[in-house]
Computed example of a mutant assay.
Amino acid sequence: MGAQYVMKVAVLIPCYNEELTIDKVVRDWRKALPEATVYVYDNNSRDNTALIAKKAGAIVRRETRQGKGNVIRSMFRDVDADIYVMIDGDDTYPASAARTLMQPILENEADMVIGDRLSNGSYSAENKRPLHDFGNRMVRSLINRLFDSNLRDIMTGYRIFNRRFAKTMPIKSEGFEIETEMTLHALDKNFRIVEIPIDYRDRPEGSVSKLNTFRDGIRVLKTVFRIFKDYRPLAFFTAVALIFFVLGLIVGIPVISEFISTHQIAKIPSAILAVGLMILATNSLTCGFILDTIVSQHRDEYELMLNQHAWQHPLFEEKERIHW
């Protein structure tokens, strides 16, 4: 028999100007998961984040493209592991919950585990930015309606992934909307999601959030809109077609009524506009059907790619000899 396969765990910490908290974060995670490798990706910090993280025992790398999405993309590409733990460097998420969150991954019950800040009320109690709480609720409602799901925390930064998810997710976002994109991707591709409540704590005094309520809120909504269009094209273009159809009726009904009464059409511009709106409605619906077929084929290809990726990993070849 060959050597036992030892699971590799990577703790991924994207950082931008976190010198006040990064030392504690790295040390907490090295203590909570001594078998894991802690990676800190410095995203053009103007302080001593990278130096402090290295002294605390983390492997420090640099990502020059600004934005959390760009950092996560590089992390998933560069780091080879079986379990990926993604947290922030601001000391808001408890390292003590790591093993609890990892359990569904280890037992093959989940592809992504979400650290849920909202269920126990800790986020609302600790967070000093009420508009962020409102934004979380609004985006959660939109996504749950769109994908017929029942997730509680869409935008948490505390997540754990298996290798299959991390290595096959196409990351398009550049900024803080990356968490929303991960959730949407998992829902659309039928990855298994498990949510576990955690205690959230606000940033310590002197640490400044990089989030901007309105700018990042608009980015998140744009991401939801793009995902709706890209992954639910039939529903999206049916909605667009319905709008054109209703407008066409509003403009066209007086023309039809006039023709029935007088057998003549005096409102030529209205008639042309009504016909144009109806053509747009028909075209939108046709586009929806065509794109829905393409998306369905893409999902089939993605499933085949996942299967191929799974069999290429040594974990599946030696799964009866895993040592943890």
Rank of each mutant, 00 (worst) to 15 (best):
N144A: 00
R129K: 14
R203S: 09
A281M: 04
G157P: 09
R99K: 14
E318G: 03
I193N: 01
Y84E: 08
Y158G: 05
V194Y: 00
T64P: 14
A95V: 09
I22L: 12
W324P: 12
D148I: 11
L131D: 06
V26C: 04
D199R: 15
E318F: 09
Y5V: 05
E195R: 00
V194F: 02
F134K: 11
N150E: 07
T223G: 06
D78I: 07
Y200R: 12
L280D: 02
L151I: 06
K54Q: 11
L242H: 12
W29H: 08
M7A: 11
Y39A: 14
T21R: 05
I253L: 15
K24C: 11
R215D: 09
S173A: 13
L221R: 03
A186K: 01
G252P: 03
R117G: 02
V208D: 05
I52W: 01
K68I: 12
R30W: 07
I218N: 06
E320N: 10
F191E: 00
I260D: 00
F236V: 02
A235K: 13
M75S: 08
S261Y: 05
F76T: 04
I143R: 03
G89W: 07
G252V: 05
G217W: 03
D199L: 13
G89M: 06
T293I: 13
T282E: 03
T183P: 12
S173I: 05
R62P: 06
V240E: 00
Y123K: 00
R226F: 12
A32I: 11
A239Q: 08
R152D: 11
I171P: 01
F244I: 01
T92R: 15
F244W: 01
V246L: 13
G135K: 08
E179M: 14
R73M: 06
G69Q: 08
D300E: 15
N136C: 01
V6Y: 10
I143A: 05
F245G: 05
P254D: 15
I322N: 06
I196Y: 01
D133Q: 08
R129E: 13
F134V: 15
Y5N: 03
L306K: 08
R163P: 00
N283D: 11
F147I: 06
V79C: 04
T238V: 04
S119C: 02
K55F: 03
F316G: 07
G248P: 08
G157I: 10
V295Q: 15
N70R: 06
N70D: 02
H309M: 12
M138I: 15
L12V: 11
E301K: 15
F76D: 04
V255F: 07
D202M: 09
G115R: 07
V240R: 00
R152W: 06
V224L: 05
S296R: 14
Y200W: 12
Q312P: 10
H323R: 13
L184Y: 11
A98Q: 06
A97K: 09
I260G: 04
P34E: 01
L20Y: 07
I87F: 12
G157T: 11
I279H: 02
Q312R: 13
Y84C: 01
D148Y: 13
V251F: 04
D153L: 02
Y16S: 10
T100M: 13
T213N: 09
E258I: 12
A239D: 09
L273F: 03
I243S: 04
G121P: 04
I250L: 15
K128S: 02
L242I: 08
T100L: 14
